[in-house]
Simulated assay, not measured.
Amino acid sequence: MRTDGGTTSAPLLGEPLPVELMNTVTGDRGRTHDTLDGDAAATGWLRAVAHRLGAESEITADQLDEDTVRPVAGALRALRDALRHLAADATQDPRPSATAPELTRGEAIGTLNALAHAWPELVWPADGRPSRAYRGSGTVADLAVQLIAHQAVGLFTGADRDRLRPCLAQNCLLFFVKNHARREWCSAACGNRVRVARHYRRHHSAPSH
């Protein structure tokens, strides 16, 4: 999937960025795919979401080349696994764990907190209006990971935590925020698959004797 400045095979569904990161683990016919597997894949994903990070910082896709992202690729995947663990806990997800099944809740919380070190600063140019921009320690790639972790703290402590859902369509491993009452699936594609499967079962079930 291509967006402004980056290419990724992960679905980008317009969810909060922590949920988009959770959804870098996908399923297909019973197989699990890690779309952040490798430095190039991590770089492509961060570049693909850079325009959303830039709303709270000065991050641009051009700053996130593979050499810059390589040192934080492991931290990005660790954050993803921690978020999936905590999302599964928050939603009582009945699906088998797709990543890091040995991770404990305490370890997941510790990983998130260790990476959520971004803070707001006042930006007030002489000829403009004051605004807020987030800063962090390290490189621009470090800040990208820190911002997503910081947003995840807000996700799990805010109203969206109660709206977070696992998509229970067959073979789907994604999460979504239930933003309207009738939404039951992460995407229209999953909803269509469920409806087709229900139709098939109704019309091909064995007759009772």
Rank of each mutant, 00 (worst) to 15 (best):
G191P: 13
G158T: 04
G27F: 04
A41T: 00
R105Y: 12
W124M: 06
A55W: 10
A98D: 11
R182I: 06
D65L: 07
P130R: 01
D67N: 11
A50Y: 10
I109C: 03
R84C: 04
I59C: 15
R135E: 12
S205E: 13
R77I: 14
L164F: 10
C172E: 03
W119K: 05
A108E: 06
R202W: 08
E58N: 15
E102D: 15
D37V: 00
R182W: 09
T8D: 00
D93W: 13
V25G: 00
R70E: 11
L86V: 08
N171V: 00
L83N: 07
G74F: 04
H204P: 11
T35F: 00
A78W: 02
A116Y: 03
E121S: 14
G138L: 07
L174S: 10
W185Q: 11
S97L: 01
A98N: 01
G38F: 03
E58S: 15
T43N: 04
A10E: 01
S137G: 12
L46P: 13
D65A: 04
L174Y: 00
R183N: 02
A42K: 02
E56H: 15
V72S: 12
A152T: 03
V49H: 07
F176R: 01
D37H: 03
E107P: 07
R129G: 03
T8C: 01
R105N: 09
R47M: 05
P125F: 01
L174Q: 12
L12R: 13
L143P: 14
H85T: 15
E58D: 15
G38T: 00
D4A: 12
L13Q: 03
H209W: 00
L21S: 05
L173A: 04
E121A: 11
V177I: 11
T111G: 08
R129A: 05
A206D: 09
R77H: 13
T7V: 06
P207M: 00
A108P: 09
E102A: 11
P16H: 03
V25R: 05
V49T: 05
V123T: 07
L143C: 14
H33C: 07
T32F: 00
D4P: 02
T99G: 03
Y200V: 09
D89N: 13
T68W: 01
L12Y: 03
D93M: 06
R163C: 09
A149Q: 05
H85S: 11
G54H: 05
R193V: 01
T139K: 08
C186L: 03
V140I: 11
D93N: 12
G154S: 08
D162H: 06
R47H: 09
S131C: 10
C190G: 07
I59F: 14
Q170P: 04
R165C: 05
D89P: 05
R105Q: 08
L112V: 08
S208A: 13
A88H: 10
D39G: 05
N179C: 11
S137A: 14
V145F: 14
T3K: 02
V69K: 12
C186T: 04
